[in-house]
Simulated scan of single mutants.
Amino acid sequence: MSELYLGIMSGTSADGIDLALVDFSNNSTKLVAHDYQPYSDQLHNEITELYTPSANEIDRAFSLDVKLARIFADAVNQFLAKHQLNAEDIRAIGNHGQTIRHRPIGNSITDQAFTIQLTCNHTLAALTKIEVIGQFRQKDIAFGGQGAPLVPAFHQFLCQQTQHDVVIVNIGGIANLSYLPSVVSKQQVTGFDTGPGNCLLDAWYQQHNVGRFDQNGQWASQGRSDPKLVEQLLQDPYFGQASPKSTGREYFNLAWLENQLALYNRANTAQKLTPCDVQACLSELTAISIANAIKALTVHAKVYICGGGDNNQHLRKDLEKQLSGFEITTINALGVNSDAIEAMAFAWLAYAYNKKIYGNMPSVTGASQSLVLGCLYSP
Rank of each mutant, 00 (worst) to 15 (best):
T269Q: 11
L234H: 10
V22S: 04
Q218T: 07
I17T: 08
A352K: 04
N209V: 00
D65C: 06
F79D: 01
A291N: 11
L31M: 00
D111F: 13
P53K: 12
T119W: 00
N56V: 00
A69L: 08
A333S: 15
T365Y: 05
N27S: 14
E3T: 02
S54A: 09
A340Q: 12
T247A: 13
L285G: 10
N26A: 09
V169G: 07
A126V: 05
A296D: 04
S363W: 05
K272E: 06
N95K: 00
L254P: 05
V372D: 07
N176D: 07
I90Y: 15
D59F: 05
V299H: 12
Q42R: 00
V364L: 03
A92D: 04
A343G: 03
G240T: 05
T194A: 14
H122M: 09
V167I: 10
P181D: 12
S246G: 04
C276S: 01
A352S: 07
P152D: 04
L150Q: 01
V32E: 12
S25E: 07
A340W: 03
I168W: 02
S178I: 03
L177E: 13
V303E: 01
I58Q: 07
A270H: 01
F346V: 08
P149T: 10
L234D: 15
T269G: 00
G223Y: 00
F143M: 09
L257S: 13
N259Y: 05
Q322R: 10
S246K: 02
M361L: 11
L319H: 14
L158S: 02
I288V: 08
A33N: 08
Q271W: 00
Y238F: 13
Q117W: 01
S185D: 06
I174R: 04
G309L: 12
A175Q: 04
F24G: 01
A333L: 09
V167G: 06
L43F: 14
A125F: 09
E131R: 15
T128P: 13
H83A: 15
G191H: 06
Q322E: 03
F114H: 14
L80D: 09
A220V: 02
I109L: 14
T99A: 04
L64E: 02
K317F: 12
D165G: 15
Q98Y: 12
A267Q: 07
N107E: 11
Q313W: 09
Y353T: 12
C159M: 13
K355F: 02
Y51M: 01
G223P: 00
A75Y: 01
F154T: 03
S324H: 14
D140P: 07
P38N: 14
P244W: 01
Q163T: 13
Q369C: 07
I341L: 03
D23Q: 00
E88N: 12
L285T: 10
C159P: 02
L373R: 04
V189R: 06
H122T: 08
A350V: 12
L376K: 10
L50K: 05
A148N: 15
